[in-house]
Design a protein around this nucleic acid. Sequence first.
RNA 1: GGCCCCAUCGUCUAGCCCGGUCUAGGACGACAGGUUUUCAUCCUGUUAACCCCGGUUCAAAUCCGGGUGGGGUCACCA
Length: 461
Amino acid sequence: MTTRTRIAPSPTGIAHLGTAYIAMRNLALARQGKGQFLIRIEDTDRERYVEGAVAVIFDAMKWLGYTHDEGPDLGGPHAPYTQSERLDIYQKYAKELVINKHAYYCFCTKERLEKVRQSQLKAKQLPRYDGHCRTLTDSDIQTNLQSNLPFVIRLAVPKDGVTICHDPIRGEVAFENAGIDDQVLIKSDGYPTYHLAVVVDDHLMEITHVVRGEEWLSSTPKHLLLYAAFGWEPPVFAHLPVIRNKDKSKMSKRKNDVSILSHRDRGYLPEALNNFMALMGWSHLEGKEIFSLKEFLEVFSLDRVTKTAPIYDLDKLNYYNGYYIRALSDEELIQRLQSGFIPADCPIDLLPALMPLVKSRLTTLRDFESLTDFFYRTPTSPEFSEEEQIYLSVAKEVLSACDWTKEGIETKLVESVKAKGWKNGPFFAALRLAITGKKVSPPLTESMIILGRDVVLERLK
RNA sequence: GGCCCCAUCGUCUAGCCCGGUCUAGGACGACAGGUUUUCAUCCUGUUAACCCCGGUUCAAAUCCGGGUGGGGUCACCA
């Protein structure tokens, strides 16, 4: 049997870094198992649905280089791949569960539920459904149904026994059934909850490995119970450690930039993000720290996954980004920069000359502008001291006469500094400031050559 | 709080399953030095960890138990 895996993002507006982290691992298993990797959209929460969010997810996956085999955009043998288009399927299976007594109608109002909750809380009991409707008679149910009372369908969780999850990463994890609530399967609006939809779809779509974040571990027994109620063979469940904020809480929008696409827009390379994410909660068997997505997909394995949750470390991402930028050829770097990182007033034909000066100085593509703006914008010159003004006038004199080559410029400049009995440091600092408007800049001589003698002399006025 | 998961340098981790080869290795960061008229790159070095307490054993980062700490989850959200 081939391996079939999936990611099941919710269209809530942004493509989350966590989704990519989960996706690349699922992709790897599917490729290694000569199977398929699919994307399924879990949009059963109508309140959270955001228009256009699905397109954002596809954009993000494409940018990262993850290719799926089945999904809402591609179709496939188990279409549709969007849960809101599968409502009748969930209804059918929920009803089947009701008939087999593994689920039941619940007519409790939100008010009653809230009241029960409050009194349980007050009595220091754990808040949960009290099973009120579990014992309703058939005629009660018929009456309620006929009078159009709103209802949900709940799973009839066994009152005793233990449900054991066999997780290849965590080993056996046991949960007392008595601690599991009678989960809502169908909401009063007719939509399924996550728990029902995920089980039905994973089964119907023949998913063999459910590789997800460990935040799902405590709901796994519910899913296992559902598989048992249906009489289905469950897939392998593996729970990856979650990515965390610096404060060790689960990575969140508030404390981190969790958007994949905003990483792209901030000038990160997909190679860097992939390499960075690969090494969170997993290590290469040969101890490699630099490798491509292709290699990751070939060598990733569940048995080298860590159980401890890693922290998103921007320093390390920056390191990878700089590394991959430096590894690019000048032509490739120009191409990458042209995806939105070259200011409108920067002449395109200037680019080839600029690459050698900026490549080792870019942490992100976005740094390009602040690094090179003095080439195409006249810097505002600061107030120079009297001493500095003397430096500049001497420099101007030398530069108006010397050969306009690296050697020509440098030897003449250094010669006159020496002749005057000055130090190189302050002299070149003043010159740099006058020409680039910055205390720190790309190499001065090379920059002057690119700028041209006229512009340089103009800036020394 | 109940349930569940986890615990090696500041961070990502190797090692743990199959105890000795670990005076615990690598990477990022930080710091120092070298190269560079600045910065960056590059090179060299330094820094820094087995959560605690018991037990098993000739021997424990590695096995067991208990603490402690951190995290996740307890919805008609996923």
